[in-house]
Simulated scan of single mutants.
Amino acid sequence: MPDITIWNLILLAEIGFGFILLLFLLKVSTKLNWYLPLAIYVLLVMIDCYSEFLFQTGNIVNTPHLLYASEPFNLLAGPMIYLYARSQEYQRFKWIKTDFLLLTPSIISLLVYIPTYTMSAADKILEYQNYGTLESDVENFVWEWIFLVSINVTFFAGALQRFKNYNDKIKTLYSNIKNADLRITQILIRLCIAIYILELVAVFLTYYELPFNNESYNLYDIFQLIVLVLIGYDAFRTYKHSATIKQEWQRIHLEDGQNIIQPIKYANSNLTPEQSAEIKAKLQMYMEKHEPYLESQMRIKDLAEQTGISSHQISQVLNESFNQNFFEFVNCYRVKKAKALIEDPTNAPLTLTAIGFEAGFNSKTTFYEAFKKATGTTPAQYKQNLSLSDY
């Protein structure tokens, strides 16, 4: 039996952890079915790791018919992440007719590999033993990986763009987006992009016989294991709070579904500069006097009802006069309130997190990010600077 290296053990760890994660994701999918494409992605990673393990250890000679068996499946990784992103956006998984087009690259790859799959076991073993000895073989290998990476990264980029557009629309409507914030999924997708780019770099290093080619492949395996761990963390966190998250998303999509799907446009607005200035002044006066931003679940719809100004006009004025969306506009007032609370000596016993909640934020993360964006410093640093200025 060939020697087992630490990197082979990492592959086995990926397979083992992937199997446990797959079972958990299937369980999660019974409550939150948008995790189903991610479960398929984990299965694809397991198949890829097992194929790589057989190839690296030489055990492929004992199962020659598995040679290149995983190649067409590698082209499904990007589409599955894209479907997961789309499912996350709408908090449900739904297969539509046009989704069959996502399988096209994988089907093309399958057709290309059919001659290899129909070879005898002896010929496949010979193919494995002679792998990479001909320059044409290596060149084909490079072009194959360029195709693989291009397809998958294109789908990953498409998924990120969906999230960007969606978050922009959400921030137009809501002053806090704790449950609608899909940053973990975005980190996951960016890691997937990094993995495929890293693997392509490793392929070129191998092709030109440059240093660190093996190290690049090893780093790829480590990154892939990190992705699996991140998937597990995200799924566990979401599953734990599944009831709350489903209620929050249902509220978002039922109440403001049309506004979320369609971007707010101002091309046909008949709002004059004078009216815009009047609305701007009215909004500022109302925010200062009534402090509606202290309500953590405040929506643009709520502000419209309280001020008698339409949501469309509020959004237009915020965008054109303040250069802000609703999320940014309200959080600026919350930051101002938080600063006042921090500066007030009677609030010294309160924690900074408690001050954030008092100011209208619904999460510590949102509070700290908004505060730092507005002031250039964290709440803790701001409080410390105040203490130092007293001496």
Score class of each variant (00 low, 15 high):
I342Y: 07
H253S: 11
L200A: 06
K31N: 09
N130H: 08
D3C: 02
K171D: 15
W143V: 07
K282W: 06
Q129P: 02
L134A: 13
P345S: 14
D234V: 05
L25G: 08
E320P: 00
F155A: 07
N59W: 13
S321F: 02
T104R: 03
L225C: 03
E215M: 11
F163D: 07
I146F: 08
D234K: 15
N152Y: 04
Q381M: 07
L67P: 00
L38G: 02
L191Q: 06
T118E: 12
T5P: 00
L110P: 01
L182P: 01
P2A: 15
F19I: 11
N259V: 07
Q384H: 07
I309G: 09
I170W: 00
I108C: 05
Y382W: 05
A121E: 14
S315E: 07
I6P: 00
Y266W: 10
N152R: 04
L110D: 04
K178F: 14
I193V: 14
T98I: 06
Y233G: 05
N140R: 05
Q258C: 06
N140L: 13
T272L: 10
L38W: 02
Q324L: 06
Y293E: 15
Q258D: 13
E291V: 02
N33L: 12
N33F: 03
P211Y: 10
I187Y: 08
S363H: 08
T98G: 00
Q247R: 15
I40L: 14
L386V: 02
L225A: 14
A85Q: 00
Y217L: 14
L191A: 09
D168S: 02
S150G: 08
Y391F: 06
K337R: 12
S87G: 10
A370L: 10
R251P: 02
L283K: 05
L32S: 10
T98Y: 05
L198I: 07
I96C: 09
T57A: 09
D221T: 14
S310P: 00
I189A: 12
P273E: 15
Y68L: 08
M80N: 02
Q313D: 14
K94H: 05
E215S: 02
L210M: 13
S310W: 15
K178T: 15
L12Y: 01
